[in-house]
Design a protein around this nucleic acid. Sequence first.
DNA 1: GAGAAGACACCTGTAAAACT
DNA 2: AGTTTTACAGGTGTCTTCTC
Length: 274
Amino acid sequence: MLKRTFVHLPGVGFRTEAHFWRQGLVTWEDFLVVEGVSGLGSARLRWLQAELQQSLVHLDEPGYFAPRLPVGEYWRAFRHFRAKAAYLDIETSGASWPHLLVTVVGLYDGRAMRQFVQGHNLEEFPEALEDVDLIVTFNGSQFDLPVLKAYFPHLRLPPLHLDLRFLLTRLGFKGGLKRIEPRFGIRRPPAVEHLDGYDAVLLWERYQRGDRTALDLLLEYNREDVANLETLMEQAFEMCQGLLVGGGPGDKLSAFNSQLSAIKKKRLKLTAES
DNA sequence: GAGAAGACACCTGTAAAACT
DNA sequence: AGTTTTACAGGTGTCTTCTC
């Protein structure tokens, strides 16, 4: 998907990208061998081709694409950097900063789940993040990452951050994580099915008073939050990509953004009716 | 080659939303 | 309850094409 993307090039927006796709210039390779493109002067075409060559040179560097891609289009890089992607969710004491305490951090790389607990191994978390290129959260841009950044001032965050909240909203799935999960067929174990973030605060307080089972439950709740992010990300990516490549080349590709918009309106209408 | 018209990217301000 | 990023809409400036 990354190599079908042109909006990371200077002066290329969604309309121009759609224009390229309509002309059969679907991938970087297509664009690099073309002699002329309507709407583009030859000098600008050569300049854009040189820029694409640079994109190929830096293909495996997330830090190259992060400042160039619109944030809302980071999902296009998901598959490419998936091998070094991680899913993250934190629990806190619920207080306001500077009294806020990070109690649990869950980090899942698609193979192994790691959890970092206040008073046990929380200080190991920054190191665990060092090898991650792409982080996936739900509303992390507004909660998890700012909190972690404040808590660990020298934390190195991955170059690419995918916030599922906004990607799912674009696909027509509005609401919090717990509300959206069932719509993707996700069901939580009975023990944590009805828990929310505030319950996580209460569980931590119970644990502080000596109830070890409260911590176990809190960790299970956090594991569910983190693991489900992978399921949601996979399906959201499939939905987005399916709109691009599902039915054929050019025309489907060019209609992508308008289809996203149409789907969003349709879902909102259905939600309102139901 | 110059001017006009159109298309487009980009900037700014505002409102909405979900996390613990 | 506070935070703050994002989506969205509207305005503006730039670039390209077209016509003469």
